[in-house]
Design a protein around this nucleic acid. Structure first.
Length: 423
DNA sequence: TCTGGGGTCCTAGGACCC
DNA sequence: TCTGGGGTCCTAGGACCC
């Protein structure tokens, strides 16, 4: 690693990292239960209740146990494992501590899940320090919390993400600038996020097996597989993507809140179904209110015992966060997809299509000199920032939250992030 | 003793309006 | 009398992620 430092002490181009916490849920359990350390621990649903494995500790993995595996199967493979349903508030708390470390190193942190985040440590964008020094320090600071992480570092999100997977746990994989292509070329297409089983099968039929082949395929051919994202997917495979890491301080851009449950025994009685809808709805309502969200669309999801499923949704006249209003709608929707004699394995209820109070809206705001742009989502904001930069050059860009009262935009007193000019 | 529980995004068809 | 097409909204379904 010291050789790397010598060689790449002068990092060229973007420096994007992806930090992934190792066996996160299981590691937190082992931290909180010292007697579980060194033993196979499985966080997930119980084998008797159609559960699946959420996370298996590294001690359980040699038995073949892994995430998303049916718990019954995991139980067969590793009968002596310690099981727990998990403590999600605790995981969220630990996650927040980890994210705070990242934000302390750079404001450009894009949390993608409870245990993963991209961060941009391009020299000069925020700090000027060598990126390799920074990722080493991040790994050390995370380990001081009692859990560990793996980090990938490269010049794009795609490269960083794949690199982070190379060496786990406690890995640090660096793909130096200029070596992206040789790193990506031989990898199977499935290695890139966004390509799942379905796209993989289609690509295989087209004779495309590796990222190198994907990068060499005309966009027009790829459109059949990726639709509007064909160009972007090709760029990612070629290691030339330009997708930026935005700030962790972007407002909550949650699009939906839902709750679903698979029942240990199928529901067959309408009264049980209505009771389940009420319970699921109550939790959705509580979470909506906690986050200050109100939605206009109610969705009901079912899976029948014979495997197939349906979703049905309805738009309301007004946004609501009150289960007393949206659960009755869910019951009406149930009437359309359930009739006497049907066995229901899974039931879900969701609220989406959020609307703010019409007169008070919190928006993202970005500004270059005196000229600003407003956006209602992170995605929109990054487009807006790019447009502003295109017009005015890469001068001082700041962004944060602004609140709109009717037509008046009230800008924040203090911007959350400052990107000072680097030239 | 097969397959959870959160989410995001895209597509496609029909209704409706101009 | 016959025949548009574009745009937007709504809905259902599916791929994909961790």
């Amino acid at each position: 690693m010291d050789d790397l430092f010598e060689l790449f002490g002068n990092w060229r181009g973007p420096a994007i990292g992806l930090m992934d916490l190792d066996a996160f849920f299981a590691s937190v359990e082992q931290l909180d239960h010292p007697e579980w350390r060194g033993k196979p621990v499985i966080v997930g649903g119980s084998p008797e209740e159609r559960g699946v494995v959420s996370t298996a500790s590294y001690e359980a993995r040699p038995y073949g146990v892994h995430s998303a595996m049916p718990s019954a199967q995991a139980k067969r493979l590793c009968p002596h494992a310690i099981w727990t349903h998990g403590h999600f508030d605790r995981y969220r708390e630990m996650s927040a501590q980890v994210m705070a470390i990242l934000v302390d190193e750079t404001p450009y942190v894009d949390q993608v899940s409870i245990d993963e985040a991209f961060f941009d440590i391009t020299p000069g964008r925020y700090a000027r320090e060598n990126p390799i020094d920074i990722v080493r320090r991040i790994a050390r600071r995370v380990s001081e919390l009692g859990i560990t992480c793996s980090i990938g570092l490269g010049t794009s999100k795609t490269v960083a993400k794949i690199a982070s997977d190379r060496d786990k746990p406690r890995g640090l994989t660096i793909v130096p600038p200029g070596t992206e292509q040789s790193f990506l070329e031989p990898l199977p297409v499935r290695a890139m996020s966004g390509i799942g089983a379905s796209a993989e099968a289609t690509l295989k039929r087209m004779g495309i097996h590796t990222l190198g082949q994907l990068a060499a395929t005309p966009v027009a051919r790829l459109s059949a597989v990726f639709g509007v994202n064909a160009q972007m997917m090709r760029d990612r495979a070629a290691g030339v993507e330009t997708s930026a890491v935005t700030s962790i301080d972007a407002p909550d851009d949650t699009k939906s809140v839902s709750n679903e449950r698979t029942f240990a025994r199928d529901l067959t009685e309408r009264a049980d179904i209505d009771a389940a809808l009420a319970l699921l709805g109550e939790s959705v309502g509580r979470r909506l209110r906690k986050r200050g969200l109100a939605g206009r669309t109610v969705t009901v999801k079912v899976k029948y015992s014979y495997g197939s499923g349906r979703t049905i949704q309805r738009k309301l006249a007004h946004a609501t966060d009150d289960e007393n209003l949206f659960v009755p709608v869910a019951r009406e929707l149930m009437d359309e997809i359930w009739s006497e004699g049907m066995h229901i394995r899974l039931l879900g209820i969701g609220v989406s299509d959020f609307a703010a109070h019409p007169d008070v809206q919190t928006d993202l705001f970005c500004e270059v000199d005196e000229r600003g742009a407003v956006a209602s989502s992170k995605r929109e904001l990054s487009v807006a920032v790019d447009k502003v930069r295109e017009r005015f050059g890469n001068s001082a860009v700041s962004f944060g939250r602004a609140t709109r009262f009717g037509d008046d935009l009230v800008r924040p007193d203090k911007y959350l992030n400052q990107n000072k000019p680097t030239d």
